[in-house]
């Protein structure tokens, strides 16, 4: 009998490097911190935003990629908070490295609480994308991704970047479109802190990720349809 000893992907990295690494894997402490953070988020969204989630039955078992419109810092938090069970535990938001991982304290918070992976604008290497693809499939992860690339300043959904298809196409991993309503009103990019207000998330049927050329537009159209404007 041959044992399959598989060390942590991030073995040998110092703490700061580990928090910023796409190879980061959590242990019991990381899971406990993330679980406590998710519980706090759920309570906050229920009390402050009376969050309503529709279409939860469309969520497949991991792995999958959640894509949505992006107009607020609340977006990644609300998508992470609405997930349950194994999907919630294995969810990673792909976040702007410059914004969330710039300082040591910020990186620790983004890694332990939000469970985010950094994407560095203009500095993402082919190896990084390969790591993201590999982990998505092998570790059966859930990625929370905003293909617009940045928050919309006016709440209108912008064009989707092609980075989504680079990560997911050819993996066989489904993409789940979502529409987030109310986040821009509650916490637009121009405000320093969020204010209470109704939030809702509509989850659409999963899309196959095989057709790389059409994937980006298909995802945008699916998200647009969920907004009711499509």
């Amino acid at each position: 009998m041959e044992w399959k000893l598989r060390p942590a992907r991030d073995l040998g990295l110092a703490a700061g490097d580990r928090w910023r690494s796409l190879k980061r894997e959590r242990g019991l402490v990381g899971m406990a911190v993330h679980g406590a953070w998710r519980a706090l988020l759920r309570l906050y969204f229920r009390l402050a935003h009376r969050l309503v989630v529709q279409g939860r039955e469309n969520l497949p078992p991991p792995p999958f990629v959640l894509v949505a419109n992006h107009s607020s810092h609340l977006d990644a938090l609300v998508l992470a908070a609405m997930l349950r069970g194994e999907a919630a535990r294995s969810a990673h938001a792909l976040a702007a490295g410059e914004v969330f991982f710039g300082s040591r304290a910020g990186a620790a918070f983004a890694a332990y609480a939000i469970n985010a992976f950094p994407i560095w604008r203009g500095r993402t290497k082919r190896g990084d994308l390969a790591t993201l693809r590999e982990r998505l499939v092998e570790d059966r992860l859930v990625y929370i991704l905003f293909p617009e690339g940045t928050r919309s300043r006016d709440g209108q959904m912008g064009p989707f970047q092609a980075g989504l298809s680079s990560i997911v196409s050819g993996t066989g991993v489904p993409v789940v479109p979502c529409w987030i309503e109310g986040a821009h009103a509650a916490w637009p990019p121009q405000r320093r802190w969020p204010r209470p207000g109704r939030l809702s998330v509509r989850i659409g049927p999963a899309l196959p990720s095989e057709d790389r050329a059409a994937l980006t537009e298909a995802c945008r159209a699916a998200v647009q349809r969920l907004s009711g404007a499509g």
Partner: peptide
């Protein structure tokens, strides 16, 4: 134990890891 579990991959077995802790 944390180092051992991460080196051997045992940390992915959350239930057993919790029992050891």
């Amino acid at each position: 134990y944390r180092e051992y579990a991460r080196a051997t991959g045992l940390f992915r077995e959350r239930l057993l890891s919790a029992v050891v802790v």
